[in-house]
Structures are given as C-alpha cells and as structure tokens.
Design a protein around this nucleic acid. Structure first.
Length: 424
RNA sequence: GGAGAGGUGGCCGAGUGGUUUAAGGCGCACGCCUGGAAAGUGUGUAUCCUGAGUGAAUCGGGAUCAAGGGUUCGAAUCCCUUCCUCUCCGCCA
C-alpha cells in the first residue's frame, strides 16, 4: 500500500508511473486527495472538541472534590453537549477513513524505474540465458507420461482421493521431493539464511499484510469456520513475522528461508498449460525472504537472483531470467525477475521462481519499520523469491535427464536421494 | 469442549472512577564523577494522527493500558463481545 503522505505530495508522478503497469490511477488519486483533505479537516474539528471536553471533565473533577456540586452539575450539561457533538464527528471521521483506506488499497505498487513497458508476458525482457544442449532420445516423453511409466507420481490417485491438481508422489518420486527440499534448505542456510518452519494457515491480518487480501481473495483456500487462509506461499507467514514491528537498523538485513506446502485455488485455469506438474493446487516450495534497508534493497534483489541462478546451475538445468514488464508485474511488486527452466520434452520454458522487491509496499500494510541511524523511523523494504518451487523443477529434471535406461538424477542430489537413476 | 485466573511501556511491575500528566525498578542512550572502568549520580527514553513553525530544532491538540463497542461530565479501573496467555478437567497425535 502506498503511503498517504506520499500520494498527497507525488500525485502526478504516481499517476504517470502506474501507467507502466497499465493502471489508470487518475480518478482514484484525485478522490484520495479530496477525501484526505476532508479527513484532516474533520479530525481537526474533532480534536478541538475533544480537547474542550477533556478540559471540562478535569474542571468538574476538581469542583466535585472541593464540594462545589452545583457548579459542577452546571458544567456537566455543557460537557454532555460536547460529547454528542464529538460522537457525531467521530462517526463521520471513521467513515471517511474507511473510505480512504478502501481507495488506497486499490492502488498497486509503483514500478521501479527500470521496469520495461509492456502488457503481456511476451513483453518481458530476457536479461540472461544459460542454456546447453539437451540430447533427448527418440522415445522421449513429457513428465506426466514419465511419471506413470516409472510409477513415481500418480495424478489419477490424487484425483480420486482429493481432486485434480493434488498428485501423489510415490517411492523414488517422493524421495526426490524430499531430496530437493533438503538440498534447497541446505543451500540457503549456507548462504546465511535462517530456517523457519511456518504455520500453513494464516489469519486475515497476515493475508492482508503481504497483499493477498483484498485483491487475491479468490486465489486462497479459506477456512470459514475459523477465518483462516491456507498459505499460497511461505512468504505470507514468514514476512508477517515482522508485522507491527520496529526493528533496529543493525537487525537488517533479515534473511529467512522456509519450506512449506503452498495452496492455490488457481480458479479459472484450464487446458494444456495445467497438465501434469505444470500447475497444481498443492505444491512444495522453498522460499527466501529478506527484510532490508531501503538504500540496499535493489542490491539485495540482484544477490537473490544470483543465488537462485546458482541453484539452477547446480541442478544442471538450462535457464533464463526475465525482467517482468509493467503489465506482467504483480500488484504488490516494484521489480520482479522471473526464472524459467527449459523442459526439453515439452519444448517449453517453465517458470520456477519469481524474485521480487516489494520496496515499502508490504511494509506499509504491515507497519514493518526500522529505526535508522539518523534516529528516524522508516519503512523497511521486503523481498522474496522462490528458491525453488518443486513441481516444475521436478518436471524439468525428469524430462531433461531421461535416457533409454532410466532417468538420471543430477549429481548434486545424489547424497540426498541415495540413488543416481530412476529405473523401471 | 467445560471451569477458573489473567493481558499495563523494550522488559518486570504498581495501579479497582477524578493532580495517573501510568508510580517504582530493570534495560538502553547521553552527561558528571574516574588515570581508565565499576560503583555512584543527573538527564532522557513509545507509536500514530494533527496544528503552528516550517522539508530543522521547538511548541500545542488528539488517540493508544490486547482489539472493538458500551456506561459516565470523566475509564487502565465498571459492563458487553472477540482474540490471546496461564491453571485444572475432558479429549487426543
């Protein structure tokens, strides 16, 4: 969420820069400024009235104590009147504030200066590519067929027991999942991240804090009886650790890593893009989260990207990095790099990680602040990235490493899997 | 799930309707003292909104004692609702 002061002072610039996100903020910003003026006016009148009432109440107290009951009773009448006034104004003020918040929450984060123009994913700018030849044999199969052929993932069983998009992983398929999770966690820990194991459900405040509510409401599973949300990513609980906190500047950067299941309704997606592991309602992911000083957050974003790239390299996967264009950038993000690995049998690039700097957008919602060296309290910057999401990595590993004799496991994982090949 | 006790500043803790403008302590920061330190001593020590000044210091108003509502001229204090913590019982991996 953008800061009210910032909107007030930079209205024109905000409108211009949000155009890169293909968002027309003109009307909303105008209305915010009008509402905000009204808010301040109303607040001033209310505060003055309350101030009078407070003074009177004190006087009455003193009069009662010194036995001047009649005088006190006379003042009471005045005080009652003021009270009624302030009640009316208070209601008005809270209505205005509610309306104002509703408006502010509609504004997406401002894209970083470097975000390229564009509307769709095809307008994203590929900024680097590390590819190598994947020699596939004649009978090469897409991963969903490999999964059945080697009996390592069972999609039908998932459909029977739960529904589409909830696969079972079996035997070496299950072991491969565990191996990847451990590998990703160990790598992150070696890079200075602290491991957390978060709750898989969060309350409404947390879902709002990281920006899932109100705009992605339908994408989360909601448990109505307890008003809890199943997390779509560990980003939500891990970032919300710091909600309503004022950190010390020496606490920064905070580097956390968490493995979690991720639950996504994925309402409205069908077709060949969702085959096999390409899109699931439930999947596993290791997520890295950082809280950083505003001056250093973009430097940190680059480091996080370099880290994610190192994972792809170690897994011997061809990958490329795209800087998202304005139109593809998420609501809360200022700058995002997408990582895609090449899945040879599908002949497709699969998105496996999204590394973003939210700048102060999440912090503002969460009231995540820090005391800077100059003694001032400022909003911190938050960043996160998948490092990495399992299903598509698994898809790419299976497809790219298939041989007539079985599926080869990348060397770096051998100590985690305990086997080098998946055979029939 | 049932019964009971609670939730006060960074932390501990006093406070059951009116100089509480939240005591006192610890911690922290700065100063004094000291050859240096400890001890001692003094001062300061939340957040948000807002007005004047003005992108500084400063001065003023309002809000916040888990959250929200209510009673009252006046609420940390009384009442209601929700959330959370602890103890006992029940259930249970």
């Amino acid at each position: 969420m953008l800061q009210l002061n910032y909107i007030r002072e930079n209205a024109e610039e905000i409108i211009q820069r949000l155009k890169i996100k293909n968002f027309d903020a003109g009307d909303i910003v105008k209305e915010i400024i009008i509402k905000d003026n009204l808010r301040r006016e109303t607040q001033k009148t209310l505060d003055d009235t309350l101030s009078q009432a407070n003074k009177l109440a004190r006087q009455i107290g003193i009069l009662f104590k010194s036995g001047k009951t009649e005088e006190a009773n006379a003042l009471k009448e005045q005080s009652t009147k003021l009270k009624k006034q302030s009640q009316v104004m208070g209601d008005k003020l809270s209505t205005i504030i509610k309306e104002l918040n509703k408006l502010i929450v509609q504004l997406p984060n401002i894209p970083h200066q470097s975000v390229p123009q564009g509307k769709l994913a095809k307008d994203n700018k590929i900024i680097s590519e590390e590819i190598h030849e994947i020699p596939l044999h004649d009978q090469a199969l897409p991963h969903w067929e490999l999964a059945t052929a080697y009996d390592i993932i069972d999609f039908d069983l998932g459909s029977k027991v739960t529904g589409a998009g909830f696969p079972f992983y079996k035997s070496k398929g299950a072991k491969l999942q565990r191996a990847l999770i451990s590998f990703f966690l160990d790598e992150a820990i070696n890079n200075g991240y602290e491991e957390y194991q978060p709750p898989l459900m969060v309350n409404e405040d947390s879902a709002f804090g990281t920006g899932q509510l109100p705009d992605k409401d339908g994408q989360m599973y909601h448990i109505e009886s307890d008003n809890l949300y199943l997390i779509p990513t560990a980003e939500v609980p891990i970032t919300n650790i710091y909600r309503d906190m004022i950190l010390k500047s020496e606490d920064l950067p905070i580097k956390n890593v968490a493995y979690s299941s991720c639950f996504r309704r994925e309402a409205g997606s069908y077709g060949k893009d969702v085959r096999g592991l390409n899109r699931l309602h439930l999947f596993d992911k290791v997520e890295i989260v950082q809280v950083q000083h505003p001056d250093r957050s973009h430097e940190t974003l680059d480091k996080m990207c370099e880290y994610v790239a190192s994972l792809c390299r170690k897994l011997e996967l061809p990958f490329r990095i795209a800087k998202l264009c304005g139109g593809d950038l998420s609501f809360a993000s200022a700058l995002t790099y997408d990582f895609e690995v090449y899945s040879a049998a599908q002949k497709k690039w699969l998105e496996v990680s999204s590394v973003s700097n939210f700048e102060s957008f999440q912090s503002s919602r969460m009231k995540l602040r820090f005391k800077d060296k100059d003694g001032k309290t400022k909003l911190a910057h938050t960043l996160n990235g998948s490092a990495l999401a399992l299903p598509r990595i698994v898809a790419a590993i299976l497809e790219n490493n298939q041989t007539p004799n079985g599926i080869r496991i990348p060397g770096i994982l051998h100590e985690y899997t305990g086997f080098k090949m998946i055979t029939k």
